[in-house]
Design a binder for these strands. Structure first.
Length: 529
RNA sequence: GCCCCUAUAGCUCAGCGGUAGAGCUACGGACUUUUAAUCCGCAGGUCGCAGGUUCGAUCCCUGCUGGGGGCACCA
């Protein structure tokens, strides 16, 4: 899309300006439409471009940096201990101006690098001369990207600075920088995350922590000989989880398609084909509520490993998360530990071997009466009624899970695997090897929310078909989240899938566990209307 | 889907049934060591949108839109 300044956007009567104008000319729009601060910067842009050689001006193709602001600070930061000291070293760096103080013959500006590191530029009449100083004062604004070259010094007040001998605009900002001393409101932080990243240290930390976490997960998988694959996001059937899908349309095929709610059924096809240790990190889409722990699109990790079961996959999951905690702590005072620090300052220990508790056992204990897979729906409904728990389209499994959440979930803060679920709600999980009526499935709870789920995978194609049929019946009852019968997947299973353990983990929620943030803070650009 | 709160200058926010305020930013000026400098001067708003009540609405009412929170559903 051609980039042009949409100066007419406030006036719907006015047709949009043609975009074939050269970018350097002034768009044909009455200047009263543009608010003052932008208009002033537009004029400065023109002046910068006016006398400029090719590649110079307000937006040069490159500036002659010799190093970076963080590198200068790393090498010369000690100068701050001895104010008014010259290093003798000359550097060229560029950064965004986040602070500016123009006085008569000596100007100060703080340049900020992308990681938030700052260095002070000092532009002195004695060093740059009258013309350069005047142009600096005339043309350089808060928010601009500026190149400066000069000697690394400490100022009289001890601040690490560069005594500028040459400066050049690196990129002129037309939009004014927001106030750096008050936080942006929630909406602006999300809609204009770039401003949030410029302004707020925690926003930058969140991005770095997420990147390190992803890196760590891939490293752990790599060390265990896993292969990373990508499976379809556009699917002709939605399956692999209980959720309402988004529906879209393919023009080429003239058919409705679903955005995937889970990659499970494709990853299992991959396992049938011989990918014995396989994982995927990618986006899922669920057309459901959005709140502090739910986002319509969310990143998910799924992993399958043959010849292990839900116990082995729980071990893997614990390793993945603990390694991620180690990675998140690199460079902090907690380096080498599994204790993560949340945004509110809380220290949270992800170390040690996490408890593995029984769903029916802990429910029975908390409810004060024995609840087993044989407990009747009537009895469970009676308990639910007495407790004020409402269950949509109740069956045994849903009731047990809802009652468990009601009685037990809120008490769980430390990482805990909740083991052995009712069969009705777990159509892709195999029966427990020794306990009748339950399946070999766990949910991992951290900080009171479900972070991951793991199975001993159901590989018997006949039982799988029965489960799908049961799901189809649930769908017919009105359960919009139930899966359909996926014949292609069943055909793959009929070719033989080796015994395997599988796991799914919400990446955004993992970040929540590591940082203590809400889900929208862990996602760089969460969905906004 | 339901309920509550919310929308005022570029940014962050006050405010009031009688027609708009602050700080920062911006603009003009002074200042060679500033740290949200200081001093002087000066701009900037369809008070989210559309209706209604009223002599008069930014304020009260209704609807709509965006945002936040809670409930329901969900991971």
């Amino acid at each position: 899309m051609p980039i042009h300044l949409d100066l007419a956007s406030h006036d719907p009567e006015e047709p949009a300006p043609m975009s074939d104008q050269p970018a350097s000319s002034t768009p044909a729009t009455s200047e009263e439409d543009v608010f003052e601060q932008k208009r002033v910067r537009m004029e400065k842009r023109e002046k910068l471009n006016a006398g400029a050689e090719l590649g110079g001006g307000a937006y040069p193709v490159a500036v002659p940096v010799t190093t970076t602001i963080p590198a200068v600070r790393a090498q010369w930061g000690h100068l701050e201990e001895t104010p008014d000291t010259a290093s003798g070293a000359t550097v060229g760096v560029a950064g965004r101006i986040v602070f500016q103080r123009n006085t008569g013959k000596l100007c100060f500006a703080s340049l900020q690098a992308g990681d938030g590191t700052r260095i002070q530029a000092m532009v002195s009449l004695a060093e740059v001369g009258e013309e350069s100083l005047a142009k600096f004062k005339e043309l350089v604004d808060l928010g601009d990207h500026l190149f400066i070259a000069g000697e690394v010094i400490s100022s009289r007040r001890g601040e690490l600075s560069i005594m500028v001998t040459e400066w050049q605009m690196a990129a002129k900002a037309l939009a004014p920088l927001p106030n750096m001393y008050t936080e942006l409101n929630e909406e602006t932080r999300v809609r204009q995350r770039y401003l949030d990243l410029i302004q707020r240290e925690q926003a930058r930390i969140n991005v770095v922590t997420r990147a390190r976490t992803m890196e760590s997960l891939r490293k752990t998988f790599s060390e265990r000989s896993y292969l990373e694959v990508e499976t379809p996001m556009l699917q002709t059937m939605h399956g692999g989880a209980s959720a309402r899908p988004f529906i879209t349309h393919s023009n080429a095929f003239d058919m409705e398609l679903y955005l995937r709610i889970a990659p499970e059924l494709y990853l299992k096809r991959a396992v049938v084909g011989g990918l014995e240790r396989v994982f995927e990190i990618n986006r899922n889409f669920r057309n459901e509520g959005a709140d502090s722990t739910h986002s319509p699109e969310f990143a998910m990790l799924e992993a399958y490993e043959t010849y292990t079961d839900y116990n082995g996959i729980a071990d893997l999951t614990q390793d993945l998360i603990q390694n991620a905690a180690l990675a998140a702590n690199v460079g902090s005072e907690r380096e080498g530990t599994h204790v993560v620090k949340w945004a509110d300052g809380t220290l949270f220990d992800l170390g040690g071997n996490w408890d593995r508790i029984s769903m029916y056992g802990t429910l029975s204990e908390a409810a004060g009466r024995e609840i087993t897979p044989e407990t009747s729906v009537e009895d469970l409904l009676a308990i639910a009624d007495a407790e004020g728990v409402e269950v949509h389209l109740p069956n045994h499994g849903k009731l047990v899970e809802e009652l468990w959440e009601h009685f037990v979930k809120d008490g769980l803060t430390a990482p805990t695997f909740v083991m052995d679920f009712p069969v009705e709600t777990s159509p892709l999980t195999r029966h427990h090897r020794s306990i009748a009526g339950v399946v070999e499935k766990w949910d991992l709870y951290i900080r009171g929310f479900e972070l991951a789920t793991g199975y001993s995978e159901l590989i018997d194609p006949v039982v799988q078909r029965e489960r799908f049929t049961q799901q189809a019946a649930e769908a017919a009852r009105g359960d919009v989240e139930a899966m359909g019968v996926d014949e292609e997947f069943l055909r793959a299973l009929e070719h033989g899938m080796p015994p395997a353990g599988g796991m799914g983990m919400g990446m955004d929620r993992l970040l929540m566990a590591l940082t203590g943030l809400g889900i929208r803070e862990t996602i760089l650009f969460p969905l906004v209307k």
